[in-house]
């Protein structure tokens, strides 16, 4: 499900660091009044739009904090007139069911995938950026091409393969699938970053007779930290939020949260407690990561990819 465009938005001259508020030109008093009124209207419109984006998630949170009986009788917004109705019953029900196990499965899938993608992609990216070998440019173009291959293409072949090898349904199977489909973007991102490392640093290290592995581990990898952070957060969120790969490759004992919650969708009304609290818990960690590492998140996205 990685969607990537092979180029960061380019054509951006670097002299545009000036402030933004300075957009409107100076005018007479009448003009200023018009601006002021216009700006008031803009403020109102933006508040409304902001609410459109904020309120649905807020609704989920309130629903998760009320009982099924209350939720089936009235909308969550009545909370503003009846604040006493809040309860954590839904969360208790959720955690006493199969959710806790699926939460750990999500962690067991996400963390190894992220580590593996970073390690394997960084090595390949270093080779693409700083080593000469025949067919290098063509091989990298293949990586660029693979950026947007739909994962649907691999579901059936890999399911058959896993069946033959005997890892169908297992966590390692899910992890390997994620790693492989995370690699094109990861290699692309890191190679573009590594290319910018000053050649003098590497040449000095090579002159000193350092091995390639040493250079990679002690020069390139540390210098690449900003890009690796972007990649890491992206990869983490992508795998954490995945549902399709889990639906196909994780059996019930190894299923992550997304698959567990999906299996509860059929009785949407009666499972509202589990679904709302589960969905809310599943999005808490991505939201914390997002707010904490927002800068890397946006960087990763800007450099040409989205989940």
């Amino acid at each position: 499900m990685t969607t990537a465009t092979a180029s960061a938005p380019s054509g951006a001259p670097s002299d545009a660091t000036s402030g933004l508020g300075a957009g409107a030109p100076r005018r007479g008093i009448a003009g200023k009044i018009v601006d002021r009124l216009g700006s008031g209207a803009v403020q109102v419109v933006m508040v409304i739009l902001g609410l459109f984006w904020l309120v649905p998630t807020l609704g989920l949170m309130v629903v998760s904090l009320r009982t099924n009986q209350v939720n089936s009788a009235e909308g969550w917004w009545t909370i503003f007139t009846k604040p006493a109705e809040l309860t954590i019953t839904s969360y208790k029900n959720l955690l006493s069911g199969g959710f806790s196990a699926s939460f750990w499965n999500t962690v067991l899938i996400t963390v190894p995938t992220t580590v593996l993608v970073i390690g394997i992609a960084a090595m390949a990216a270093y080779a693409f950026a700083w080593m000469e070998f025949p067919g290098r440019d063509t091989a990298f173009l293949v990586v660029v091409g693979l950026l947007i291959v739909p994962i649907q293409i691999a579901l059936i072949p890999i399911a058959v393969l896993y069946g033959n090898v005997g890892i169908f349904g297992s966590i390692p199977g899910v992890v390997l699938f994620h790693v492989a489909f995370g690699l094109p973007f990861a290699i692309f991102l890191l190679r573009n970053f590594f290319v910018g490392i000053p050649a003098s640093l590497l040449e000095a290290a090579r002159m000193d007779g350092a091995s390639e592995w040493k250079i990679f581990a002690s020069v390139v990898f540390p210098l690449g930290k900003p890009a690796i952070a972007s990649l890491g957060i992206f990869q983490f969120l992508w795998v954490w939020n995945d549902m399709l790969i889990a639906l196909v490759f994780a059996d019930t004992g190894n299923q992550p949260m997304t698959k567990y919650l999906q299996s509860q969708m059929r009785q949407f009304g009666s499972n509202m407690d589990i679904l709302s609290s589960g969905a809310f818990l599943s999005l808490i960690i991505p939201l914390i990561l997002f707010f904490a590492f927002q800068r890397y998140f946006v960087q990763g996205m800007m450099s040409g990819s989205v989940k």
Binding site: A12, W130, L189, F193, G196, A199, E203
Partner: peptide, 27 residues
């Protein structure tokens, strides 16, 4: 406030179009 050229993967070290062509000591 940050132009996209520097927000991109190339970050502060510059865009990806500086091909390392003049290397002599390669593996």
């Amino acid at each position: 406030k940050v132009p996209p050229a520097t927000t991109a993967g190339g970050a502060a070290t510059g865009p990806a179009d500086t091909p390392p062509k003049k290397r002599r000591l390669g593996p």
